[in-house]
Design a protein around this nucleic acid. Sequence first.
DNA 1: TTGTACGCGTTATCAA
DNA 2: TTGATAACGCGTACAA
Lengths: 343, 343
Amino acid sequence: MKPKSKRASGKPTIADVARLSGVGTTTVSRALRNPQGVSLTLRKQINAAINQLGYTLDRNARALAAARADTVAVLVPSLANSVFAEVVRGLYVGLGESQFQIQLGNTHYSGIEEERLLRVFLSQRPSAIVISGIDQTPAARKMLQDADCPVVQIMETGPDPIGLIVGFSHFEGGRTAARHLIKSGYRRIGFIGARMDPRSQRRLAGYRVEVEAAGLYDQRLVTTTPAPSSVSLGSQLIREAFSKAPDLDAVFCNNDDIALGVLFECARSGFPVPDRIGIMGFNDLEMMAAAYPSLTSIRTPRFEIGVRAMQVVLSAIAGNLEKHPVVDLGFELRVRESTKRND
Amino acid sequence: MKPKSKRASGKPTIADVARLSGVGTTTVSRALRNPQGVSLTLRKQINAAINQLGYTLDRNARALAAARADTVAVLVPSLANSVFAEVVRGLYVGLGESQFQIQLGNTHYSGIEEERLLRVFLSQRPSAIVISGIDQTPAARKMLQDADCPVVQIMETGPDPIGLIVGFSHFEGGRTAARHLIKSGYRRIGFIGARMDPRSQRRLAGYRVEVEAAGLYDQRLVTTTPAPSSVSLGSQLIREAFSKAPDLDAVFCNNDDIALGVLFECARSGFPVPDRIGIMGFNDLEMMAAAYPSLTSIRTPRFEIGVRAMQVVLSAIAGNLEKHPVVDLGFELRVRESTKRND
DNA sequence: TTGTACGCGTTATCAA
DNA sequence: TTGATAACGCGTACAA
């Protein structure tokens, strides 16, 4: 069969559809983007022509003409970390039936890489940008300020948002965790952390403030590493912690993977949980409730942050300006067996 | 400060750069894409002009003119599932310093959604497509065949690849698992599975073939659900399994989350592992080795699949045609405490 | 090695 | 409600 159009590319264009359906290109374009703006009769003719020709829209041409891609750029520090996987899931859910597409970028916890990705993404003229955290490099911050589209920072709250911000306070999360352990009667309360990105640092700061206030702070109780967190790393770090402070009687873990590793190691070493040692994590991944003994954690609104951030994005794209640029979604202490002493 | 260019958009274009640096637009374009093709002198002038103007490339215009976006479309069934998170990580690593960008799509294990996303992605004229599994709908398969770019299926091997394929045999994985449990002396060997996507089905089929060959098959030993897998679901399913077959003495779990849930439930119920019941999972996530007791699993080359798939993609884009369209990366049995009987 | 002229497929403007 | 026409910013012959 011969090509129906004379175009070089072979693919039918909006002009072919217009010709076949006997209307102008503008009308076809309109029928595609805003069907209500075109009479039912023409719409039918146009749709018939589209089907007959097998026409598909070229989004690159659209983006060029509209000076804007139907894209929301999303920058997260990790995809392997299930915390961010859930944020991303929330973002997709928040998208709903909207026409926008998510352009995902993984910064690998690197400010430099974030900057590079931002440059690439910006060159696509996205309709909005969602970026994780509040610790962008000065250059990245400037790019975001100059970007002529809405910018939403997520995962944290902070005093100086670039545009909008949806998250919660990691500092307060750390305080709440420490307070819980103190109230539960533990006295030698350690902190174990891997990765130690800015958010982990703030959780540690919260822990420290609270433990110091109780007169219980001891630097030997804190064990951290910049290495990426994992379950086996948790096992390793608790051993380290015990060697520095043999009388350790509770640990607040940076995140749930670490906490799980601690739990396994305690089981292996015959350290009863929660009586010999209390364990709690951070984020409250699904497994925490299923573990034996079940693990105390701080539930963070990861999914909700995604959903809400995307709602805020869509609203901003639509031109609505939010009254409250900072949305604090909070967190929740989930007390379970691993910190319930029986004494 | 007044705009340096007369363009409507305000943003400087390649023409502005050309004017300021006293060269033609072609030369600027060339300096951007293939610096070696331009003399050092001009390159310096051009770079100076770019910096002075704050010029940034418009990728939409580039994609339109080139009739192709520098994009690799990637379709996975889930991002929350850490198996696919690792595949995606591998894809990024395989990308290396290349100019291409990954456009990620989440099909949520739905063929319909896969079809929809494919249509959207195709309208962006990607340079290549990476898609999970071999069970596309007929319509999706046709779109892939008609796409004028390389197509790589991942995660499985199969007899009838659309283009190239990088994966391993889930059927053989299931057989290997069952064989290991039989050899380890277990006799009432169950299968526990959640989600039961096509790959899980094939693992189950492999298990069944092997267990039947040993004369040990019993339909009451198989417990599955279409629900998404999770640790707590593992705990729930093993209870179900025991109620159907109280003499169950080993389980091959569909995946590692389920296996972990089984482990916790056995600990809670006081069922010694591996003596009363053997447990093994599938995929060999990092936590399996750290668990107590450590958990036997089948290590699948998730990360490697990603890396290799992207290598194959880049090679195909460069015009090299592979000799072997099917790349089988295999898998590996990892025997640990949870299936080492002490009798 | 460098430059000119044109085309890519769509949308925005403005008039009808 | 509809349509003609001019951008949109870059790549690619082809020529120099």
